[in-house]
Design a protein around this nucleic acid. Sequence first.
RNA 1: GCCGGAGUGGCGGAAUUGGCAGACGCGCUGGAUUCAAAAUCCAGUGGCCGCAAGGUCGUGUGGGUUCGAGUCCCACCUCCGGUACCA
Length: 942
Amino acid sequence: MPRYNPADIEPRWQAYWEQNRTFATPDKPTQRKRYVLDMFPYPSGEGLHVGHPEGYTATDIVARFARMRGESVLHPMGFDAFGLPAEEHAIKTGEHPRIQTERNISEFTRQLKMLGFSYDWDRVVSTTDPGYVRWTQWIFLVLYDTWFDPEQKRGRPISELPIPDSIDPADEAAVEAYRAEWRLAYETEAPVNWCDALGTVLANEEVIDGKSERGGHPVRRLPLRQWMLRITAYAERLLEGLEPLDWPTGIKTLQQDWIGRSAGAEVDFYIGSADGFEDWKAGRREAGFVDQPQADTLRVYTTRPDTLFGATYMVVAPEHPAVPRLTTADARDAVKAYCDAAAFKSERERTQGDREKTGVFSGSYAINPVNGAKVPVWIADYVMASYGTGAIMAVPAHDERDFQFARQFDIPVVPVVDPPADHALRQDVLDGKACFAGSGVAINSGSYDGRSTEDVKAAVTASLESEGLGKAAVNYKLRDWLFSRQRFWGEPFPILHEIDADGRQTGVKRPVPDEALPVSLPELKDFRPHGRPEPMLEKADDQWLVVELDGRRYKRETNTMPQWAGSCWYFLRYIDPLNESQLIDPEKEKAWMPVDLYVGGAEHAVLHLLYSRFWHKVLYDRGHVSCDEPFQRLINQGMILGEAELTLYQTEDGTVVAPQDVRRGEDGMTTADGTPVMAKAVQEEDVVKQGEGWVLKDDPNARVESRSFKMSKSRGNVVNPDVVVKDYGADSLRLYEMFMGPLEATKPWSMAGVGGVRNFLDRAWRMIVDQDAAEIRLVDALVDSPCNEEQARVLHKTIRSVTEDIESLSFNTAIARMMEFVNYFTRQKQRPREAMQTFVLLLSPFAPHLAEELWQILGNAKTLAYEPWPQWDEAALVESTVEIPIQVNGKVRTKLVVAADIGKDDLQKQALELPRIQSVIEGKTIAKTIVVPGRLVNIVAK
RNA sequence: GCCGGAGUGGCGGAAUUGGCAGACGCGCUGGAUUCAAAAUCCAGUGGCCGCAAGGUCGUGUGGGUUCGAGUCCCACCUCCGGUACCA
């Protein structure tokens, strides 16, 4: 009984493809190239999730389609294999993370192969491979060797950095210290999350509400020497580079917001002794704006220099270096207490939750440069040390945050912008009782009164500049990238720190020489934390830690790189995966880059994509790659949710609570008045739709919630691809994931839906194969004669739709068109071979195993992977007659079948003659008739 | 709060971008086949009124533009995702 049996077909074709290296990539593209890339997965112990094959199937369809259109395709896969879970496993079991990682990779590989993706498995990469780590470390050294030249707006070798005259070129230490200020990779002290109880440094995601995720132990913030990458130098380039990319606008906006460019001015306020203001001002008029403010100066950044006259107080961040200088004796205790408390909290905590403003008066005053007014200087944590200058001028009348703070501490509010006349709160703003952050007309601003906000901004900035008191400035929210981790399972930094005879670091650093790369991880006996607030690699013995080079002794850098590092450049390695002598062969790089289509989850919208772009731009500036943006076109596949769930909410006593009245708090669900609420699963057959929602059949007052949730282990709604493949086959899984809806949409899983597409594949099989025969043979209906006119039209329409839908990534509608094809030809007593063969080719990118099998049954000897993609014939699409809807006043009253090429007048005449139309317009006069040839007729009658 | 996306049958979703709303699939109903069932095939399937022909309402809500609106404009509501004092 030759039924469609994926369990037999699929492994057979997978073996065929592998043995014949069907999907080997040409080393260099021969004609048009297409680089189709998936975001590579982290090989977790959980195995593949149904979310993975969604994007992978989409790219696979594009790749297979492109091959059939004669394009050279690069379609690779790999593994982002460093990461915390493997290390946690190692801590628990003592098993080396590499072993677990390799086990997970082979499980992932098995699952990926089971789904029939046309990856070139000869090019598979893993970020943990020594041959890969080597080049990740090498790129780090490129970053270390590069400075960003703001004049030329590009990265250049550090040897080309001009050394200022103030530094003696012979003083190596001074020169190096200066260079360190410019290098794209540099060291700094940055706080880490140190957990005493666990004896380890934790990643941010391992800290929840100031407690360790595991165990809930308290976490302290401790400063630790760490590596940073100067991504901020590239902020402008990263912003500009977005513009021409074919990315979803949402993702572009997200990146723009993340970079967060703002323009305004830096303004200096005098904070020295009371009588020195005039001298200070005169000095500035002479010398101009200085690069580094002196001790008697407090520099602020503002986007609203026009509101300078309304500055009624100043705020500096608790970490601001001027805090001790500003703090007067009486205020000392309060300030110290406040700053200590702030230091305990992370920036995240400080900015989260209820935003009640806190602060403390420093005891000092600053003098407003525009009007000489004396304003108090406060210390408050609503100002971030790491943004702008870490200090602000507060204008409560025109800044929401300052307004709140001023209310809290009873600070005067002076309006300096008159809102537009129609502004609802205008009078309140003018009375200092409300805040207005928009544009208007200057008031209380001396000679600037009466001028527009835009105008005053420019004028004030210009005036400050000429007085040497300020200057136009641009700021970014983007911060430098904290690039080191204190864990074991990551790439070691290829940096050596010189040590003296006593083992103390001299402060001299040197890169590990090229030929000594990669720096491998040390062998450890166990992976348990050493209990010190230091990197894990400090556990290594001296054999690894201490290096002798050119007669000097060095200690290795013991931080490791974050997981992001490996994913920043993996798409380059695929192009030249075995190269040992250089990062990438420039010829190959030029031939394949940039990536033409990149598909992955939206969770990487900002960080991964921003980091990769940054590295790529540096590599571009340094001449290692030929394009400055790596990913031309980006698509985010939507999330797949679990099956829809029906839930009834009840209190203890059985009272039903409407879903919208359930509050979800920290300690579970309650009603508005705090009564605990319990959830109860309800069966589909017990509910009925009522209005917008659902109710119990037995109790129409009991409202039931219908919702799909994110798949999660705890909810128990995770769908395992292995199970789906076993029950329905890989082709059905692929097809279903594409048929669910638009690629980018969030959509709920439905096992019944998988059955639906399986049904379609069964029908496709039976359309061609006689399943009642004892052996595999073609159905009797299959004939060698050509299509009749109608069949040809159906065939060519299908070719066109499927082709165009693949091009626009509308896979769901492409499948619908193929279903229509099968529905039509199943009813045909004669099924021409040409139509069947063409259909199999159209189906092949979606359901490749079945298509290969049918292709073979149809008498073809070799794989269809490189058969030319079918072309449609416009002439075959033409229909001789069309059915035209005839409307009266916009409502369809009847339809009319006419020749497709009928003239406008003719059509109108025929429409008006229709008896049905006659009766509808009887007694009315025709005001107007709209005739759209080939589409419709609309008669306007009154 | 802000940013982004989305609201269309019982469900997932289609709609040449202003021109027959509900393609395709699931589910459901009826029929054929069968000793029976599964499987398969055929027909039907937005609501309401009507025996029917047909009528009427209908794309989150309210307004508008238009001969004609799911699609364009204005105001709002709900849900999902992201983000959080960036001066």
